[in-house]
């Protein structure tokens, strides 16, 4: 390499005043690291908080009683800590809501992605999303003051607080979740696939039902799981409408209690820290957190499978 040195020299070295290495550059990067770590710390915080109180809880109550007991009466004597009634109430609302939201959500998603074009599609999609932007306490109000009284005209033995109207309003609330995630999946199905089907003489409804929908199936499944997970985590509407009497029953006409509404019920009262009642909200929270976490992970797995294929 001898003789290759150039007479002209350039200052290229990193230093405290060079652009990529200056103080402001490093402060900037440092701030980004700190900010990002907040979301990681949040997750760790949730797990640590829930687990630490849950461990205390399980020192007094056995796993067997908790997971197989059929009575949940932590606030009245004799106390029972069997979570099944709460899980049952939660599933009743979650499944009921899905029965409404899945058909409506997927039908409107398929309709919007296959039959509607241009600005009308954007307008309709945005309008549907307004349903998700309405505060959940408003849905609770509607369930109590409108849905239940209307239903009582047809179903005389419907209780004032009941799982049915809670499921109905939660179902309406999660329509946008299902329709918007499904619609994104349908729209992501490649044009060539549709064109091929049209080229074979397929008609719109045939292409929609036999090409687009099957191709986007895993995206659709992801939307259903996400919607379900939102429904079981829903709090205010259920607290207001479904009542607070934990029951191991699948009768939607009765008052029940969900995991979320139990948590709210306890925290509305002034329960001192360290008591078994106080700890029970952490255990119920942990159960709820695990259920939604598993749902979300499954939904992500499905939507990744979809994206790998088409995006």
């Amino acid at each position: 390499m001898k003789g290759l040195e150039n007479t002209q020299s350039f200052a290229l070295k990193r230093s405290l005043s060079s652009p990529s290495n200056s103080l402001s550059e490093n402060i900037f990067k440092g701030l980004l690291y700190v900010a990002t770590s907040v979301s990681v710390v949040t997750t760790i915080g949730i797990v640590v908080v829930l687990l630490s109180e849950a461990i205390q809880f399980f020192k007094e109550i056995s796993f067997v009683e908790f997971f197989t007991g059929t009575q949940w009466t932590p606030l009245i004597e004799p106390k029972h800590f069997g979570i099944l009634p709460l899980v049952c109430g939660t599933l009743l609302v979650g499944v009921g809501a899905s029965l409404i939201a899945v058909p409506v959500g997927v039908a409107s998603a398929l309709f919007l992605s296959e039959y509607v074009r241009g600005s009308l599609r954007t307008i309709l999609k945005s309008t549907l999303e307004v349903l998700a932007g309405i505060p959940t306490v408003v849905y609770g109000y509607l369930a109590i003051t409108f849905v239940t009284p209307q239903l009582q005209q047809f179903i005389p033995n419907l209780e004032v607080f009941n799982a049915l109207s809670a499921a109905i309003v939660v179902g309406i609330m999660i329509i946008p979740t299902i329709s918007s995630v499904s619609q994104d999946a349908f729209e992501a199905v490649p044009r060539e696939l549709r064109d091929a089907a049209y080229g074979l003489g397929g008609r719109k409804h045939q292409v929609a039902m036999t090409v687009v929908f099957p191709a986007a199936l895993s995206g659709f499944v992801a939307s259903v799981i996400l919607g379900f997970s939102r429904a079981i985590g829903e709090t205010m509407a259920v607290t207001l409408a479904a009542g607070s009497t934990p029951k191991l029953s699948f009768n939607p006409l009765q008052s029940i209690q969900t995991m979320t509404s139990y948590i709210v019920q306890v925290s509305l009262g002034d329960t001192p820290a360290g008591t078994i009642e106080y700890r029970s909200i952490f255990v119920v929270g942990l159960t709820l957190f695990s259920m939604t976490l598993i749902s979300n992970l499954i939904a992500q797995w499905f939507s990744r499978r979809f994206q790998e294929r088409y995006l």
């Binding site: 350039f10 290229l12 990193r14 230093s15 060079s18 652009p19 990529s20 290495n21």
Partner: peptide, 10 residues
């Protein structure tokens, strides 16, 4: 030791 940003200025 080279700062790529300085390099790209030249």
């Amino acid at each position: 030791s080279i700062d790529p940003a300085l390099l790209r200025r030249h």
